[in-house]
């Protein structure tokens, strides 16, 4: 009897917390398809706001994904070999480099953006292109890739595996492809998931770095909240959701498959 009571109260509490988090999302999404939010849902259901957002912000949406996957590509190409190098080399210097790579986690995005602006703001072409935002995202997400790959390296004794492959005649590059990358896969997938998610949702840094022509989804969202009717901003949230949730689910499944394989 007492156990049932405890279970019921725990369940109730969990549901309450979930509701606390989910209700605003649902409200926001329904607002996006309501004709007039202030009169409520009885004013009618419409897709006009969604269409309007799509027309206005399709560019931002495309750019967001472009930047997210470009960030992923850069963190993969740079981060995985870097993690490998840091792990194999070891020693004090490697630890210092690792700390430096991790630093952006502790520094506010605004400060990173400011530093980038101070340093590269003068290079007009670079400053105005989306590559500028890409640079910011790479700095911000790199520690996540490097850390999660290094965590795997530490757990599978990659150095000995590498030496084993070397003793069998494999060149450094062959070893990297045949042994290092396949065995680091769980970390690479987990890192990738994190990098894409963070890049898509990043606001602080991006807001500082963007130009009117280089805006990402979250920046556009802030824009529409500030300057348009609530229904439009809500429709924007809806689109954001529809785009991101399936992507995240797919990547999560991919990552899990990689781990249990």
């Amino acid at each position: 009897m007492r156990d049932r009571l405890i279970f019921a109260s725990q369940l109730g509490f969990t549901l309450l917390v979930a509701a606390f988090l989910v209700v605003p999302v649902v409200l926001s999404i329904t607002a996006g398809v309501t004709v007039n939010y202030f009169r409520g849902i009885q004013s009618g259901v419409t897709l006009q706001w969604v269409v309007q957002v799509w027309n206005l912000y399709a560019g931002e949406i495309g750019l967001s994904f472009l930047i997210a996957f470009a960030t992923l590509a850069v963190t993969l190409v740079v981060g995985v070999p870097a993690a490998y190098g840091l792990h194999v080399k070891g020693g004090r210097l490697s630890r210092v480099i690792e700390e430096i790579i991790t630093l952006p986690l502790a520094i506010p995005g605004l400060a990173i953006a400011l530093a980038l602006l101070l340093t590269y703001g003068g290079f007009g072409g670079f400053r105005q292109s989306w590559l500028f935002i890409l640079a910011g995202h790479v700095v911000f997400t790199m520690p996540f890739m490097v850390r999660s790959v290094m965590a795997v390296f530490a757990s599978v004794d990659i150095k000995t595996l590498d030496e084993g492959a070397a003793s069998l005649g494999a060149s450094p590059w062959t070893r990297f492809c045949n042994v290092i990358v396949p065995n680091a896969m769980p970390g690479i997938l987990a890192g990738s998931l994190m990098v894409v998610t963070l890049s898509l949702g990043e606001f602080n840094l991006t807001w500082m770095l963007h130009t009117p022509l280089t805006k990402t989804l979250p920046v556009g969202l802030a824009d529409s909240y500030a300057s348009m009717r609530l229904e439009v901003a809500s429709a924007y949230t809806l689109i954001f959701f529809i785009m991101i949730v399936p992507l995240l689910v797919a990547m999560q499944m991919f990552a899990e498959k990689g781990e249990t394989k």
């Binding site: 084993g164 070397a166 003793s167 069998l168 005649g169 494999a170």
Partner: peptide, 29 residues
């Protein structure tokens, strides 16, 4: 370098490749 010395090596921890089968491990070299 070791990869050109044509040695065979057995490590204390074996260093077998977890991403390959037994036959693939043996045939790797």
């Amino acid at each position: 370098p070791i990869e050109q010395r044509h040695v065979g090596m057995v490590f204390q921890s074996y260093a077998l490749f977890p991403n390959m089968t037994v036959a693939e491990n043996i045939g790797y070299g």
